[in-house]
């Protein structure tokens, strides 16, 4: 089982993502509704993959990742962003800050698990 932390402010999207990952059966999912909550949670937790929404009130996905990277045990954990602003420049920028992949919203719930696994393999 892959330990995944999912940070997303939209409760409905959190639920859809949880259902689709549960359906795949390969993930042990922890969900947080903001960057601050996620940072508190990862102090004593080491996930195998971090799934971050980009646009969130308070800390953005990018800021959240930057803070997580400061924690030695999260320095090399693959991070995947989800964004509704799938602009080429923005995607490039996210890759440059160390994103293993950028998943555009709306995502396909039936292939989300495969997309995450493929990004980890990369």
């Amino acid at each position: 089982m892959l330990k995944l932390i999912h940070v997303e402010d939209d409760a409905d999207i959190r639920e859809i993502a949880k259902m689709s990952l549960d359906l795949a059966g390969d993930f042990d999912v922890i969900q947080c509704e903001c960057g601050e909550e996620a940072l508190a949670r990862v102090q004593d937790y080491t996930p195998d993959v971090i799934l971050l929404d980009m646009m969130m009130p308070g800390m953005t996905g990018r800021q959240t990742l930057e803070e997580m990277r400061k924690l030695p045990h999260l320095a090399n954990v693959p991070a995947i962003f989800m964004t509704a602003r799938a602009q080429h420049a923005e995607i490039e920028e996210l890759r440059n800050v160390g994103a293993a992949d950028v998943i555009s919203k709306p995502f396909d719930p039936m292939s989300l698990a495969d997309q995450i696994k493929s990004a980890i393999r990369k």
């Binding site: 409905d12 999207i13 639920e15 859809i16 259902m19 509704a84 709306p106 396909d108 719930p109 039936m110």
Partner: peptide, 14 residues
């Protein structure tokens, strides 16, 4: 628009 569509499409897809 995309955020609610993510939920709508996701829910229907599931």
């Amino acid at each position: 628009l995309r955020s609610p569509l993510t939920s709508i499409k996701g829910a229907m897809g599931l």
